[in-house]
Nucleic acid binder design. Structure first.
Lengths: 192, 192
DNA sequence: TAAAATCATTGACATTTATCAATAGTTTTT
DNA sequence: AAAAACTATTGATAAATGTCAATGATTTTA
């Protein structure tokens, strides 16, 4: 739905109707059913992707077949693989719809052109990047300084709506512990 | 040294002499001797800081007194606490000179003004932010998917010059393991 | 509606890691 | 030059976490 994206932008910056429509004119609408992949490991990622509805996850799979979840992307969030996008190298990650989803894709070149051309759009994009960076720093700090139990509590505190939306083992994967350990942490905490 | 910063910028973007001098005119030179602090936990961080010489680390201290190193910043890198800067909240972190260092400080307002005014400077800054984000994503991926040994090998591989410049226990702190464990990992690896 | 898949839990056990303490080598400070 | 501080290592032990397997509940699929 283009309306969702329109609202997303106008909530963040003041922009003319013309500019807004120009941006929208480059959006490629993609519908994904649950379990479908937006990106597969080994492919080069060439877009900026806005989730207008649904829910996605980005994850890698290691030698042992264990999945490691890098991010969850609900509606009104972006997803993609910036490393692959910038370097044009094969991605290490998969992006999969956990629910039926609607995505707006912007080709790299189109997106960059829009950033150059529409100043407020560029500002918005950089602001988002800025906030994403701060968020990722916080995740790093958690990962090196907290116990597993603290990581879990922190996750639920910071992302309650995501915690309610995904199976427990995916939270475990996101914070970097085994599903069994998370299960035990929770049952321990309940006893208190 | 302003020359270092000049070279840093001109290596990255083409910029007029006038614009370059305007940027430089806002730089506040700060010299730090080894062990001196650029930022102390609890203070609000209000700058963008460019390291023109020397070497800094950013770290937190937890309840038990254990330090957790968020970043190392050698010459030609930036440091600071973006979360504190953006939200104007007390920082959780300390920034300390590990060697005698020279820092260029730009007040938040000046830096933002320069970004608005000098287009190529803004582009450069956003590029750096972009790369920093990609780097931090990579660190997150390591933290959730690699074993301690792999984290260490990965660190040395990616940051050989830093690995040679800091005591081993600081690498342990950066990757989120105890110094004893890192020592044992290394001695195990030597046996092979 | 029956079968299959997914999910969370639990037990048993192995492995990894942290903690505490002691030591010795090195570097820094006085 | 001596003292102090820092650093890396090692041993002993405890704690945390992972792995494998089984179970039952729930959800999804056919």
């Amino acid at each position: 739905m283009l309306e969702v994206f329109k609202k997303y932008i106008t909530d963040k910056v003041s922009i003319s109707e013309d500019e807004l429509n120009e941006i929208l004119s480059y959006a490629i609408l993609k519908k994904l059913r649950k379990r479908q992949f937006l990106l597969q490991e080994g492919d080069v990622w060439r877009y900026n992707a806005f989730v207008s509805s649904g829910f996605l996850r980005k994850f890698s799979v290691d030698d042992k077949g264990t999945e490691h979840i890098m991010s969850f992307s609900p509606e009104n969030y972006w997803t993609g693989d910036r490393e692959s996008l910038v370097n044009e190298t094969p991605s290490k990650f998969n992006i999969e719809a956990l629910e039926n989803s609607e995505i707006l894709l912007f080709k790299k070149e189109d997106f960059e052109m829009l950033c150059r051309k529409i100043h407020v759009f560029n500002n918005m994009v950089n602001n988002i990047l800025h906030r994403s960076f701060i968020t990722s720093q916080s995740r790093i700090h958690s990962s090196i300084s907290l116990s597993s139990e603290e990581k879990y509590n922190n996750f639920v505190l910071k992302f309650p709506s995501i915690a309610n939306r995904v199976p427990q083992h995916m939270i475990a994967s996101y914070i970097g512990i085994s599903p069994e350990t998370l299960s035990r942490i929770r049952s321990q905490a309940n006893k208190k």
